Amino acid sequence: MPDFKLAQRIAELPPYLFAEIDRVKKQVAARGVDIISLGIGDPDLPTPGFIVDALYEAAKNPANHRYPDYEGLPAFRQAVTRWYAERFGVTDLDEAREVVSLIGSKEGIAHFPLAFTDPGDLNLVCSPNYPVYPIATRFAGGEVAFVPLTEANGFLPDLDAIDAATWERAKSIYLNYPNNPTAATADAAFFEKLIARCRETNTIIVHDAAYTELYYDDAKKPPSILQFPGAKDVAIEFHSLSKTYNMTGWRIGMAVGNASLVAGLGKVKTNVDSGIFQAVQQAGIAAMRDGEPHVAGFRDIYRERRDAVVGALRKAGIECPLPEATVYVWAKVPQGRSSAEFVSEVLERTGVVLTPGNGFGAAGEGYFRISLTVPTARLEEAVSRIAAL
């Protein structure tokens, strides 16, 4: 048999976090254990029916069966600009130059370094982090420097702690708020300071904003970075319909912002994919136009789940901040165990699947993540099993 060796960039990859969790979960389930999976952030709530209906109607149109535009239907990109204007007050977006459709935001984030990162370039990654940020940089031959997010600093990067030489060398800085996995949010003062610093140092801001609509206080709606003066000089923002409208399997999102950054990403996409199925784009248009009442209902459900989990964890003596956004709870591992040890013990002894904090980078050590993506009763059962250890 021939021995086909993996490319070095693949061979050096650690096991993908959720794939490894899934492997262990199957082993435990094979023993007959009742599994409660709180690992991956995949909403259990169904996609609203009107979005499904829009897909059905669009799929019946033969015109939608052909290759789509690489950049996205003009109508979809116009819908994105309308949504940004209504939700964030960003009224100056040019849908032809400053918006590109994505086959899910993960695809766009993974491809972005291919457009702007040369071998040896340095990208900053705020960590704990979504694993795709550093992996995509390394695939492009770039180097990664992790900027720690600490609880003492509200899980925001300390921009002043990054030395001048690093800022001068940094090609990009990757961050996301509301944050996965910590559930932290960022305010206007932080974004304004970040924009000013990156304009001074000619550093690209890559902002992953997938969770802005899953907030719990109407008075504290998470902002888009594009709301702030100067952002379009240096920033590209990635957004997704996945978490907002429970469309994770539909693979549809968008990148918005600086025209040169959007164009660079678009050039990569024209060489590696053929765009989103047009019927899915039509459904996405319907979602952005009419989905807010449904999203408000989702927020109510997640708020109930959040309150139940946080209350039960604290009662069990496990420390965790109260999330203001996302579908996650970020909690401290009980003393004396590492993140991996604790999560492994919980899975083996109780059948509850958690995500170890160190799976999001070394800065996540000492924490674990719970996804609020099962019904409240199952969440309460899961925490009761954890508390009984």
Rank of each mutant, 00 (worst) to 15 (best):
F4L: 03
A7Y: 06
P14Y: 12
P14D: 03
L17H: 14
A19S: 13
D22L: 05
R23D: 03
A30S: 14
G39L: 07
I40C: 04
P43I: 06
Y56E: 14
A59H: 08
A63C: 01
H65V: 04
R66D: 15
D69V: 05
V80A: 01
T81C: 03
T81K: 10
A85W: 04
F88Q: 12
D92E: 14
V99L: 00
G104C: 05
A115K: 03
D118G: 00
G120C: 10
Y130I: 09
V132I: 14
G142I: 11
A145Y: 06
L149D: 01
L149W: 02
E151K: 05
D163Q: 13
A165G: 09
W167G: 13
R169A: 14
A170S: 10
L175T: 14
P181Y: 07
F191E: 08
E200H: 10
T203W: 08
T203V: 10
H207K: 06
K220I: 00
S224P: 09
Q227V: 09
S242R: 13
R251Q: 11
V262D: 08
D273Q: 11
A279D: 13
V280H: 07
Q282S: 10
Q282D: 11
G291V: 02
G291D: 04
G297Q: 14
R299Y: 03
E319F: 09
T326P: 07
A331C: 14
A331S: 13
T350E: 07
T350A: 03
L354V: 12
G357P: 12
I370F: 05
